[in-house]
Computed example of a mutant assay.
Amino acid sequence: METITRRTMTTIHDAICVEITKVHDTRGNLSVIEGNAIPFEMKRVYYLYDIPSGARRGGHSHKVQQEFLVALSGSFNVVLNDGNEKKTVILNKPNQGLLIPNGIWRELENFSSGSVCLVFASEVFEEEDYIREYDAFLLSKNGIS
């Protein structure tokens, strides 16, 4: 008997906002990301800052890598696209993050002055993991490599 394996396609509904633990204190707040706060082992951390007015970041998808984005300061929009649907998530709280699974096209835009986007990634940087052309992304979603 032949076993047929189907790839599970991620959709924008698989990208979820996650509350980050916040410890309130009269001296200021402290937020912690540890343990199983995000569903993958962090292998890389980077951040975006000093983004010029009107600039966009992202504009790609990942084959394997998952990411968890946090607006440490300011705000920005994350436009998610699964090839069928789009949705925009506004990140503007340092105690809230956006989990983006692989297979989702993302664009970051509308950065406020002084905004900082912190990114936790499930993989180290490998150019081969990126899909940087939207048409190639659509083909990958349809099982065409």
Rank of each mutant, 00 (worst) to 15 (best):
I131W: 06
E123H: 13
E67P: 00
M42S: 13
Y130S: 07
K22M: 08
K141E: 14
D50P: 05
L48R: 02
D129A: 08
R27G: 11
S113T: 10
D14S: 13
Y46Q: 08
D135Q: 13
G54M: 07
Y134F: 11
P101Q: 00
V116I: 15
A71H: 03
S61N: 04
F125I: 07
T8N: 06
H24S: 15
R57D: 09
V116N: 02
N81W: 06
E127S: 14
K22T: 06
K141F: 03
S53F: 06
I20F: 08
I20H: 03
T88G: 01
N36W: 01
D14W: 05
V32W: 05
G28Q: 04
R27T: 11
L48N: 10
H24F: 12
C17K: 12
N92Y: 04
A121M: 04
F40G: 08
T88P: 04
H24M: 15
I51L: 06
S31G: 13
L72V: 09
S61T: 07
S122N: 08
V18R: 08
D82W: 10
I20E: 06
G143D: 00
G54N: 07
G114R: 02
I12K: 05
I33T: 11
G103M: 05
D50G: 08
T5I: 15
I51E: 08
P94Q: 01
P94D: 07
S75G: 09
